[in-house]
Design a protein around this nucleic acid. Structure first.
Length: 420
RNA sequence: GUGGACGUGGCCAAGCGGUGAAGGCGCCAGGCUGUGGCCCUGGAGAUCGCGGGUUCGAAUCCCGCCGUCCACCCCA
């Protein structure tokens, strides 16, 4: 069959057989977030485009080439949400959350859109779980957010993950460091890859993150951010580390870790699965003390993370983590003969009203076919309503697991199902 | 955005210039008259991703498009 329509490139349907994973991740997320005292927030799928261009950074890839931007009929320039943090900050400001007890702890579960070239684990529409804590600069909050993310993965049953931690400094020390880094690279530009030559101008911190063979020697000798942090940033980082150690969240310092958004300050982190591979990062985040101010609000320190649901599910499958099976209907109502059609429909309805999930046979199949169906769907009981039962006001109840079956008065059916 | 691999019924998959385009799973029906899971039999379902070209003849060769996947890039 030639497909007239396909889901747009980089998007996918989540079929019933996959929903068990989604339910599992979503339920776990909501439980853990509640456990940490985070409250759910939902923001629109699209926002004013400049919300992202202003905060994420004009020069970042996300803004430069990955945003879905469009004008609505009123001429407003809008963008499909390419990341979760800026909208939360916007909502924080818009609803005066600055006058709630600080910090304000929020979490979200939202589709994210980026016009990327699709690959396994990289889609044009994907979903993120995120948590943000706004209005407090304590390092304990960085650690709290990181612990929340870590416990979430743990709770899901994922293992062998690595948490990388770094600090990229703040307005005090980063500009100086970037200058130092540029000075270092200036003489060596001839020895680095073309991408790095571009990074030198566009986003110098990314130079440290290059994976090209030829750039490694240059990176190895490059000045480290960690050694150029100002006092407060250095203290902040070591405090974060101390808190993480106190709650046994294992981390690895990764001085080359940089993130793709311009708004980060100080703490940045990422979590990776054991496999090598390009788009492996499961989640990441950091502190963004300047973001709310960028949106026209008062100085408001904040920290948060985002983690990709699709990648988590890939990882759950790869690690063969068992997820709870979806609930199946308990009873299949089979019937035979035209006279039984209406009574069967009524029986199904009555059982459902008692809270028992029921599948009713459709059409006019043979009893054999109905049994086959019930079996294929993993149902517990088949209630049979045929001429015989109709005549004597009874129902035959068959347990599929062992084939035990009895015919009982219709009034006793419910009782029998509930207490076998 | 760059480079590469791939694309056969819902799923897996053989075929690689001339076939009625295998097979398995799944689906539907039947194996006597009211009953599942195994087994047996039968059936439905394919313009071989789409469009063009080469050829007497194309699923098989060539080109373009679409899509998936891999590496880069970037990130979740």
């Amino acid at each position: 069959m030639s497909l007239r329509y396909q889901a747009p490139r980089g998007t996918q349907d989540i079929l019933p057989e996959d929903q068990a994973y989604w339910d599992y991740v979503r339920d776990t997320a909501s439980r853990i977030c509640r456990l940490f005292g985070y409250e759910r927030i939902d923001t629109p799928v699209f926002e004013t485009a400049s919300l992202f261009t202003r905060t994420t950074g004009e020069a970042t890839d996300i803004v430069q080439k990955e945003m879905y931007v469009f004008r609505d009929r009123g001429g407003q320039e809008l963008a499909l949400r390419p990341e979760g943090t800026a909208p939360v900050c916007r909502a924080y400001l818009e609803h005066g959350m600055g006058s709630r007890p600080q910090p304000v702890r929020l979490w979200y579960w939202a589709p994210i859109f980026r016009y990327d070239r699709p690959q396994a684990g990289r889609y044009r529409q994907h979903h993120q779980l995120g948590a943000e804590a706004l209005g407090d600069s304590s390092p304990s909050l960085d650690a709290e957010v990181i612990e929340l993310l870590w416990r979430f993965y743990q709770e899901l049953g994922l293992s062998n993950l690595t948490l990388y931690l770094n600090s990229i400094g703040d307005g005090q020390c980063r500009p100086q460091y970037v200058e130092t880094l540029r000075r270092y690279y200036r003489d060596r530009l001839a020895h680095v890859c073309p991408d790095c030559q571009a990074r030198f101008h566009r986003s110098p911190l990314r130079l440290l993150d290059c994976k090209q063979e030829q750039c490694q020697p240059v990176i190895a000798e490059a000045p480290s951010m960690l050694e150029h942090l100002c006092g407060p940033c250095r203290d902040h980082l070591s405090e974060v580390g101390r808190y993480l150690e106190a709650v046994d969240v294992p981390y690895t310092m990764q001085p080359r870790l940089v993130r793709g958004f311009d708004y980060y300050t100080r703490t940045v982190f990422e979590v990776h699965p054991p496999e090598e591979g390009a788009q492996s990062a499961l989640g990441g985040g950091g502190r963004y003390d300047g973001l709310v101010e960028m949106l026209g609000g008062p100085p408001t320190p904040a920290v948060g993370f985002g983690t990709g649901v699709e990648r988590i599910i890939i990882q759950l499958k790869r690690q063969e983590v068992p997820v709870p099976a979806p609930g199946r209907p308990q009873v299949y109502v089979a019937w035979q003969g035209a006279e039984a059609r209406l009574p069967a429909f009524r029986l199904a309805s009555e059982l459902r009203q008692k809270g028992i999930s029921v599948l009713l046979a459709t059409g006019d199949r043979s009893l054999k076919a109905q049994m086959r169906q019930a079996d294929a769907r993993g149902i517990t009981y088949v209630a049979i309503l045929g001429p015989r039962e109709l005549q004597e006001g009874s129902i035959t109840l068959r347990r599929l697991a062992d084939g035990y079956q009895e015919t009982l008065p219709a009034s006793a059916l419910l009782q029998r199902i509930l207490s076998p």
